[in-house]
């Protein structure tokens, strides 16, 4: 049923955009908790898009890591810091410029990826399963993978160093 899948794609994509908008510019509430919750919903909508691409592993990990762990920590910090309603921020020239630059850069990468993408040949099954992904990560992309883990380790050590009041 291709039509049904298309319909689901538009539903999830629309929801992701809507929730994303409500996360950064919610007209009804300036509460940071509400923003965080809409970010969770955005992540879940993105996981739905991954499922439509048959990337079940990515979808599950997206929910597990981002919605289930990272965002919970966000909420945790927001609640511990007891942030009040955000003030409406004044837009400065520099902010607008930096924002516009970021948007243009990301849009450029996206457009380039869309142009470079090849339409899938008929008959090839899309595989987003765990085994092929793991194989790729530990053969072809081993170096970037290890560099990423090292980066995370460095970040972790840095956080521990910063949060210790005094080093014995």
């Amino acid at each position: 049923m291709p039509a049904f899948t298309d319909l689901l794609f538009y539903a999830f994509a629309g929801l992701a955009l809507l929730f994303g908008f409500l996360c950064v510019a919610n007209p009804f509430s300036r509460s940071p908790v509400t923003s965080a919750m809409f970010l969770v919903l955005t992540i879940i909508a993105l996981a739905g898009l991954f499922i439509l691409l048959h990337a079940f592993f990515l979808a599950a990990v997206q929910i597990l890591v981002y919605a289930g762990a990272v965002m919970v920590l966000f909420l945790f910090v927001i609640m511990l810091l007891d942030l009040k309603e955000e003030d409406r921020r004044k837009m400065r020239g520099f902010t607008i410029g930096a924002g516009a630059l970021a948007v243009v850069a990301i849009a450029g990468i996206l457009i380039r990826a869309v142009i470079a993408a090849q339409p899938l040949a008929q008959g090839i099954l899309v595989e987003g399963e765990t085994k092929p992904l793991g194989k790729l990560l530990f053969t072809q992309y081993l170096l970037p993978f290890e560099v990423m883990s090292l980066l995370l380790l460095v970040a972790m050590v840095g956080v521990i160093l910063l949060s210790k009041k005094e080093i014995k």
Binding site: I63, L64, V72
Partner: peptide, 10 residues
């Protein structure tokens, strides 16, 4: 399962 369980904390 782990993904859904981790949402339970919300």
């Amino acid at each position: 399962t782990f993904g859904i369980v981790s949402l339970g904390v919300y």
